[in-house]
Write a protein that binds this DNA or RNA. Structure first.
Lengths: 138, 138
DNA sequence: GAGTATTTTTGTAATGATTTCAAAAACGAA
DNA sequence: TTCGTTTTTGAAATCATTACAAAAATACTC
């Protein structure tokens, strides 16, 4: 948990037990979990944990740029503790979200809208069927 | 409405009155409206129109690739009748969504995930504050 | 053109993610 | 320890979306 605590502090976020747990979860699980997936896991560790706290914490982390928020399927927001520039690919069959490396990391920045005064977030995502699911349905 | 009707047919979609109205609205309004914005406008034209029909129609159009569906703020899905490759920029102050041209239209395709068997959709979006809103708050 | 099957629309009710809010708990400073 | 501030909690409310079955419109056949 040391890493998560220091990571939060580097963003100026006070490291409460709940915040550290959420951040630690996201740093150690590259699965792009939803609020409920995070809550369901952490409530074992912190039995008094409230879903609202998970919502509050994720908002806070997102506002401070400590995590990414991904809205791909229009149903659930997914979260990512890995904030280096990369894209995402969601399989509409299994629901998994994969990280996607970019051949030109500067592309997104270079195409920043001209009429944007401030840009707080930029995301590139793909939707489709992953190879694993495509093979299964043979 | 002629254009919308033929446009739908080119995608193999039967042109009902409601479908043509929704498609026509999206072809003539580049505002990236939500379901409710579309419904509220069209119900004047088609008084019996149901919100469910708008939902059904938008799903259908999206499935056939006739429109884009944008999930940017995680609250509302916005729709776009202009399907040529471009990105979007949403101002978190006024809520407007702007079209963004790309300096390299092939970028998105070129970076298609390796483990993708089928790609049905790809979107790039930016979030921030637009110049108009930034000037207002001076 | 009448009759029948199929597709589409409609409206209400249900679902489920997210937000609101005020009280309780934890924390920090003096 | 005490007081003020921040954070957490949980229940209730909100609101976009979906489910579903009946009604309406459309297409198909004789």
């Amino acid at each position: 948990m040391i890493v998560a605590r220091e990571y939060l502090q580097s963003f100026g976020i006070r490291p409460s037990v709940q915040r550290v747990a959420v951040m630690h979860y996201l740093l150690t699980h590259r699965t792009h979990p939803t609020v409920d997936e995070i809550y369901s896991e952490l409530v074992n560790e912190i039995p008094t944990l409230s879903r609202t706290t998970v919502y509050n914490t994720l908002h806070l982390l997102y506002e401070h740029g400590a995590i990414l928020a991904l809205c791909i399927d229009g149903v659930n927001t997914h979260f990512d503790g890995y904030t280096s520039p990369h894209a995402h690919f969601m399989c509409s069959q299994c629901g998994k979200i994969y990280d996607v490396d970019l051949d030109d990391v500067a592309f997104v920045e270079r195409n920043t809208p001209k009429n944007a005064s401030i840009v707080t977030d930029a995301q590139l995502y793909y939707k489709g069927v992953c190879a694993t699911c495509a093979n299964k349905s043979n």
